[in-house]
Structures are given as C-alpha cells and as structure tokens.
C-alpha cells in the first residue's frame, strides 16, 4: 500500500473545521440541557401514580429507545416538512437530539430516583413538604449524583451521534468534513483530523461535566464519598 499523506491540502480549510466543531458543541450543549430537563420530567411522569401519564411516558421512552436515531431525525425533518412544517436543518437536528436523548435520560434518572430510601420520603412527607418540594429538594440532586457517570456518558454518546445530522446536511463537524474531502479528495487526512477534533471535543465535554459535578454535588466535593 502506497499512500502519501498530505495534510497541507487541508490547511486552508481550518476555519471551516472550527465552525463545524463549534456547531457540534453548540448543538450538544443545547441538547444536553434540554434533554436533561425533558428527560427528568418524563422520569417524574413515569413514576407518577397517574396511570395514564405513567404509561404515556413509558410508551415514549420505549419508542425512542427501540428505533434508530437516523429514522427519528428523518421523521422530524422530512416527515414534518411533508406535513407542512419545514424546520431549519439545525433546529430539526436539535429537536431530534433532544427527543432522542431525553428518553435515555429519563430511564437513567428514574433509576436514580427509585433508589431514594423510602424513609427519607416519609421524613420529608412528615415535615409537611409537598410532592414538588420533595422532588426538588430531596429526590433530584442525590438521584443525579448517583447516576452522574451513566448520564454524562450518555451525553458524550449523543455528542458523537450529532454526526448523523450530516445526513440532513447539517454543517456540523462531519458535514463539514464531507464537504472538505469532496473538494480536496483528501478523505484519509480529513477524517483523521475530524476524529482528532471529536476526541478533543469529548475531552472538553468531560472536563465540563466534571466541573459541573463539583459545583452541583457539594457534599461529594467536601467529603469525597459516594451516596
């Protein structure tokens, strides 16, 4: 096999790489925040005593977790377009990502919530706290602390699967890479560079989650023990 690497051919494209990486990061942050909020609400809904609400949330979670992300993306972008709702590519992508990751979030967060000792709920109940107060002050933060590694792992996976949105020509990192390699015919080099950038983004994201964890879980920061 004879192949001469020529990364020089990519030099003039670096602003595009940066743009793609930034768009990937923006989509990821937006979907992570929204996905966490929506997913947590779905988890609460699934734990509700209201059977209808609980089943609806369960049906949503199972549907999303048992269909491919690409199909969900096509459904939201092309499906809604043919029904008359034409969304910009990035908007459709982010909606699809939130729709997808919220379902995984819901299951992870639900596991964390279910692990709350019953005695703590009885104590809160006996102090006169309402259900929303109990969720906010007693259940949520320890639940997130328990499942934090699983949760952040899920969001890193989601960041990587933003590459799928290049299929509806979102100009995130993979989309950009496709353009560049078809202009330069330097696909080997292009994808090596892109893989490197994805690695870098993952590290940035991990550092971000680590910092967020420190800010959020005061007890863990001070004592260094797990719940």
């Amino acid at each position: 096999m004879k192949y001469k690497f020529d990364f020089g051919a990519l030099a003039e494209y670096w602003p595009q790489f940066v743009d793609g990486a930034l768009l990937t990061l923006e989509m990821t942050v937006l979907s992570t925040v929204s996905g966490l909020v929506v997913g947590t609400l779905v988890a609460i809904g699934r734990r509700s005593e209201n059977k209808l609400l609980s089943r609806l949330c369960g049906a949503y979670v199972e549907t999303v977790r048992n269909t491919p992300f690409l199909i969900q993306l096509f459904f939201i972008y092309f499906g809604l377009a043919s029904a008359g709702l034409r969304l910009p590519v990035v908007v459709a992508s982010v909606i699809a990502m939130v729709f997808n990751v919220a379902a995984y979030t819901a299951e992870i967060v639900r596991a964390g919530m279910d692990a709350t000792p019953r005695g703590q709920l009885e104590a809160a109940d006996s102090l006169g706290m309402s259900l929303p107060q109990i969720y906010w002050h007693i259940i949520l933060r320890p639940a997130l602390e328990r499942v934090y590694p699983a949760l952040t792992g899920q969001y890193i996976l989601m960041m990587l699967s933003t590459s799928v949105t290049s299929q509806i020509s979102a100009e995130e990192l993979t989309g950009i890479a496709n353009n560049i390699q078809s202009n330069t015919f330097r696909s080997f080099e292009t994808f090596i560079v892109v893989a490197g950038i994805y690695l870098l983004l993952t590290l940035i994201l991990k550092a971000g989650f680590w910092g967020l964890g420190l800010a959020l879980f005061t007890r863990r920061r001070r004592l260094g023990t797990s719940l």
Partner: peptide, 16 residues
C-alpha cells in the same frame, strides 16, 4: 403534619 413531628428508628436525615 405541621402539628405533628415524628422521629424514626433509621433517622432518615437527608444525606446530601
């Protein structure tokens, strides 16, 4: 519950 306090065998403090 505003009028009645209760203490349990297993303390049930909020660990966080």
């Amino acid at each position: 519950r505003l009028d009645v306090g209760i203490v349990f065998q297993s303390y049930n403090l909020f660990p966080h």
